[in-house]
Design a protein around this nucleic acid. Sequence first.
RNA 1: GCGGAAGGCUGGAUGGUCGCGGUACGGGCAACUGUACCGAGGAAAGUCCGGACUCCGAAAAGAGACGGUGCCGGGUAACGCCCGGGCGGGGCAACCCGACGGAAAGCGCCACAGAAAUGAAACCACCCCGGGCAACCGGGGAAAGGGUGAAACGGUGGGGUAAGAGCCCACCGCGGGGCUGGCAACAGUCCCGGCACGGCAAGCCCCACCGGGAGCAAUGCCAAAUAGGGACCGCGUGUUGCCAGCCUUCGGGAUGGGGACAGGGCUGCUUUUGCCCCAGCAGGUCCGGGUUGGCAGCUAUAGCUGCCGCGGCAACGCGGCAGUCAGAGGAAUGAUCAUCCAGAGGCUUACGCCUUGGACAAAAUCCGGCUUACAGGCCUUCCGCGCGU
RNA 2: UGGGGUGUGGCCUAGUGGUAGGGCAACUGUUUUUGGUACAGGAGAUCGUAGGUUCGAAUCCUACCACCCCAG
Length: 134
Amino acid sequence: MDGNLASAADIPPAVLSRLHMLTQRADFQRATRAPHAAKPGFVLQMRKRRADEPVAPDVIRTGFTCSKKVGNAVARNRAKRRLREIARLALPQLGLPGHDYVLIGRKGATADLPFAQLQADFTAALSVLHGKSR
RNA sequence: GCGGAAGGCUGGAUGGUCGCGGUACGGGCAACUGUACCGAGGAAAGUCCGGACUCCGAAAAGAGACGGUGCCGGGUAACGCCCGGGCGGGGCAACCCGACGGAAAGCGCCACAGAAAUGAAACCACCCCGGGCAACCGGGGAAAGGGUGAAACGGUGGGGUAAGAGCCCACCGCGGGGCUGGCAACAGUCCCGGCACGGCAAGCCCCACCGGGAGCAAUGCCAAAUAGGGACCGCGUGUUGCCAGCCUUCGGGAUGGGGACAGGGCUGCUUUUGCCCCAGCAGGUCCGGGUUGGCAGCUAUAGCUGCCGCGGCAACGCGGCAGUCAGAGGAAUGAUCAUCCAGAGGCUUACGCCUUGGACAAAAUCCGGCUUACAGGCCUUCCGCGCGU
RNA sequence: UGGGGUGUGGCCUAGUGGUAGGGCAACUGUUUUUGGUACAGGAGAUCGUAGGUUCGAAUCCUACCACCCCAG
């Protein structure tokens, strides 16, 4: 392959700006009880926000977390950045508005697997969760 | 060429595509957006020391307690760091290592074994005298030999003696004193003493020096929001002079001012000095509740980097010139592709081809050190051995 | 950022300079028709790692590793 990332170039800025970052611990803990899909490189959790939460309903929010089990600071940072990259490339097109997505890094795999496989797994995980929620 | 020692540098390169944080200059009412530039390390790590800075009622001084450091001299803002020297140990050498003050200030400990573990003494064996046929017994001498132990009351050699012993002598060791060299640690040398002084201070301790506590989530400001709450502490107004005017029945009385004593408060271990209060009705501590926003601190100076000159053996200091070098804040510095450069493996006589694949580890207020981790590569100096000239 | 603690057979724990001990578990044997119980027996330890002090270190000192806890 030629490493074609043209799909990312097609993202309209308005859609990109709807991606928000999760920071609060409570948001992560709510996502823990939500449906999840495990892949070799990561675990994806998806949660539909309730209507009474003070967040705009068309916003997609994402969070990234890597525990100490993933490795030292370098390994954790690398894993989070790769997760952020696959989410940035795919989620504005494939994600559902009004949902929170949390990506969890896994030991060894997240930082070492080929990037194309991570992207494919992410797309597959999204379709599984979306099918479940319907 | 082989083996080794010391020191230093580096820590993949280039280019596309898509992103992130900051600054500057623009555009836009604003959300935002355009361009340019900058954007992890030698250890950013561990958080083991030392500081800067801020607060703690002023963070002031002395003594003690506690903690730390520990050959000498120098460097430094400071240090437990660095440099040089001394001494001891290791190595053929280059060189490396060392918690390296005091054990005649005192206390304590030295298991087992051994007669005995520092006060002195004597198990076996030795020598002399007496007794006994003898085995041996009694008295005395001596501490050289054996044995035990990690360590045994100076060592070796000679003289000496009944046997022996620093009893005497030489050398070595030890202690004391003098002289010489050195700022000093210490070294050299001479004289004296016949030996008295075992080890452990990373056991207590003694000596010298150093140290107030907390930490950028320090601290200051702004905004918002909630409450206008609960509990506790502090209610002590004393004594004595001086001054001023006032009242007076001439005894004195009250008021005001300013002192002293008593009392109270203040050093995040105690205490002394010290400081504050002394009449102001306000204040302090804790709990509960709310906010989990913004700005400053915040990155430039004990600066740092490069080059040059001077002083110094060196650490380092002084001076000049040039440059300026991340500032995030639930936390940016990334992802991916191609080519190349090292490296590893396979195939090949070889050229080469294919596959694989980048060490450790990421700023969190800043700086100086220490310690620990680290694939590979490069440079300089030195030592030993071998060969050639 | 600062402070505190722990590490000993598979598990829990004692030991504070002088031979590493106890309980549970596991193993072997006896008892029992068999299992369990009971009894008896033996084995099993780099004392977290590496250096040092000492004649001698689980113990004292230094550095490191892992885990846990606390405060703002």
